[in-house]
Amino acid sequence: MIREYQPQDLKRIMAIWLQGNEQAHNFIRPDFFKQNSAIVEMLIPMSTVYVQDIDGVKGFIGLTENYISGLFVDPHFRRKGTGKALIEKAKQRHNELLVHVYKKNNDAIAFFLSQNFEIVSESINEETNESEWLLRCNVEHNVRIGKCAL
């Protein structure tokens, strides 16, 4: 079941966030995410967050307007539809979705491309000095054909 974030979810969300970042971004110095976790913990309640709750939080998506500020899934629930379900929830709420993905994060890039996102630009992340892509998905509601149609 996908539902809105509740304050009691924060500890589990932060554990999934930290583990996911450390696993997916082994090209970034290991302490970077730990150093930024307090900021993220403060920002989560200010964002629109949906969680996949199957006997506890198994994944989440954080949105700031139509920008995906985070999509993380517990390693045991990856490749089982959790990420796709969270993206579908975001597509129900927005006509366009944007997300930055590190160019070296091949799994995330493949996932977003499989969800009909397109690469629109490349830049350097100022905090990590790593190359990242901006991906966009145009959502066409109530239409059967077209990119990202619901």
Rank of each mutant, 00 (worst) to 15 (best):
A149L: 06
L18H: 13
K58T: 15
T128R: 13
R12V: 11
P30Q: 15
I87V: 08
F72Y: 13
F60M: 13
D55S: 14
K34E: 15
Q6T: 10
V40L: 10
D74T: 05
F77R: 00
A108E: 01
K89N: 02
V143C: 07
A38F: 01
Q35A: 10
L86M: 08
K91G: 03
G56Q: 05
N26D: 13
T128E: 11
F60E: 04
N21V: 05
A149Y: 10
P75V: 06
E41M: 11
E41H: 10
E126G: 06
E127H: 06
I109F: 05
R29Q: 14
A24F: 06
Q19I: 04
A108S: 15
T64G: 12
S123V: 01
P45I: 01
K80A: 01
H76P: 02
Q19D: 13
R136S: 08
N138Y: 14
A110S: 08
G62F: 00
M42E: 11
V139Y: 04
R93G: 01
D31I: 06
F111L: 00
I124N: 06
N21Q: 13
S37N: 15
P45S: 07
L97M: 01
P30V: 13
I119P: 03
Q19V: 03
G59M: 03
N105K: 05
P7C: 03
D74Y: 01
N36E: 08
E96D: 05
I124F: 09
L135M: 13
N95L: 08
V51D: 00
G20Y: 08
Q19E: 11
E127M: 08
E88Y: 04
P45D: 10
Y5P: 15
V57Q: 08
E22S: 05
E41L: 08
R3I: 05
V51E: 04
I39D: 06
W133C: 06
Q52C: 09
V143F: 11
E130C: 04
P75Q: 09
K147S: 12
P45Y: 12
Q115I: 00
N129L: 07
Q115T: 00
N105E: 03
L18Y: 07
G56F: 08
M1C: 11
N21T: 07
R78W: 01
H25P: 06
D31M: 06
S121I: 02
Y5Q: 14
E118M: 05
I124K: 12
C137P: 03
N36C: 11
H94A: 02
F111N: 03
H94W: 10
Y67T: 02
Q52V: 02
N125T: 07
V73N: 02
F77I: 03
K11R: 12
E96H: 03
T48K: 09
W17V: 04
V99N: 10
D31Q: 11
V49T: 15
G70A: 12
V73Y: 08
N106P: 01
T64H: 12
G81E: 10
M1Y: 11
F32E: 00
N138Q: 15
N26L: 07
T128K: 12
K80C: 00
N66L: 07
F117A: 04
R3A: 12
I61Y: 12
N105I: 01
V120W: 02
V143D: 14
I61F: 00
T128S: 12
A149T: 13
I44F: 04
G83A: 12
G20N: 07
D55P: 04
S47C: 09
R136I: 06
L150N: 15
